[in-house]
Simulated assay, not measured.
Amino acid sequence: MPEADYLIIGAGLFGAVFAREAAEAGKSVLVLEKRPHIAGNIYTKQVAGIEVHQYGAHIFHTKNQAVWRYVHQFADFLPFINSPLANYKGTLYPLPFNMHTFHALWGVTSPAEARAIIQKETAPYQLKKPTNLEEQALSMVGPEIYHKLIEGYTQKQWGKEPRELPSFIIKRIPLRWTFDNNYFNDPFQGIPQKGYTDMVEKMLSHPNITVQTNTDFLSRKETYLKQFSKIIYTGMIDEFFDYRFGALEYRSLRFETEVLQQADLQENAVINYTDQETPFTRIIEHKHFTKQESDQTVVTKEYPEAWNQTKEPFYPINDKKNQRLYKKYVKKAHEYPQVHFGGRLGSYQYLDMDQVIYQALVFAKHELHMPQEKSLEVADKR
């Protein structure tokens, strides 16, 4: 096993960003990845000449200009505005909820008309503070939009009734009174021109960084703990501790990807299927992320499913029961001062890509004792 100042477990965004920052600071870094590839769940690869998002659609978006500058060191980004559609029993509705959606639902053409309907629909649900996703959705948009565009999709996505889920999940969905199909409010949005794998490869391309794929840290955990005084762990925090207090809940995904001998299937990158009867939640047509032209197209159907220890964890279920359990693991982690737990799985948080990068950069700043001029506020330091 090579000697290194830092052992990083996981070659996803958190691990790759910290590895790069540590290497730039003159530290030697060893990155272990149990999968046969780097880049974690943002891994992309060429299929039939089309850049495919292997683990579901990933659109980079951020409000943080420093993070936007940071990723541009490693990739050229193509402009991309995420404008998904919702298919409810054969009828298409634009997302996020905006004037196009309201026109498709009710034929209204002005914000005043739409507001009047929304106010009437939501009035019965304004009597108390929402305590779960269903109450939050009903108070935001009322029963018609909830039943057509939220309820079935949510049940499939999370495997739970909406009333069993925390209210904050639905707050991610914008509600607009303009004809604007841009799903995100963030000013900086795009897709790496050569794919996310190429971007992460460039992050890890440094003489101070060694990467080993197909390497399972947990199979030799005690040996690694004895050998390395600084470990960054981006896997599941409960798995690190052998599920001592019980397993945290996650949601997993299954993907069916197919090459079609036609130029186009749906003329949109993402279409969500919001009825409960359709078993998958969305169809992704990958060529539309980068506007590739081809006589073929590659599509992926995304099926949410229950997680178990043989499957990949994608979404932590951050309800009160799981947060209580997570705090037990955080307390246990204090017994391992040489280990830092980071990333979506290590910190058991639902994080977007830019948030993971920000988290890694902030940690790097403090861990590596960077001077002020190398702080995140000057992320275009190189």
Rank of each mutant, 00 (worst) to 15 (best):
G49A: 02
K301L: 00
K89M: 10
H366A: 08
T290M: 13
S294G: 06
D264W: 13
Q136K: 11
F314S: 04
I38E: 06
H288D: 03
L351T: 03
M353F: 15
P174H: 03
V108C: 12
Q359R: 09
I173F: 15
I150E: 09
Q276T: 05
Y146L: 02
I173W: 15
V29C: 13
H103D: 09
K27S: 10
P304T: 01
V47C: 04
L127D: 08
S375I: 01
S139F: 07
L13V: 07
N208T: 01
I150C: 11
H366R: 12
E239C: 04
A86I: 06
L325C: 11
I8Q: 02
R172C: 10
Y43E: 03
R251V: 03
D198Y: 14
Q261E: 11
V362M: 13
Y336D: 02
L13A: 12
S229G: 11
K160F: 13
Y250V: 04
E312R: 06
G26Q: 12
K34C: 04
G346F: 08
A269F: 00
N268F: 04
K160I: 05
I271A: 00
N41P: 06
A379K: 01
K291W: 10
M1Q: 09
I170R: 03
F184V: 04
V52R: 00
N318P: 05
D5M: 07
P174D: 07
D198V: 06
Y88I: 01
K171F: 11
T109S: 14
L345T: 02
Q126H: 07
Y183F: 15
K328S: 11
L92V: 04
D354E: 11
W177I: 06
K171E: 14
I117W: 09
A66C: 14
P143A: 03
H37S: 07
A75P: 10
Q157P: 11
E151F: 08
P111A: 00
I271C: 00
M236R: 13
R69M: 10
E285L: 01
I271H: 00
E21V: 05
M140L: 13
N98I: 02
R282T: 00
N41D: 09
P192I: 08
A25L: 06
I231S: 06
Q212S: 14
T215E: 11
W158C: 12
Q323I: 10
P111Y: 14
S167M: 12
A25I: 03
Q262H: 06
N322T: 02
G142T: 00
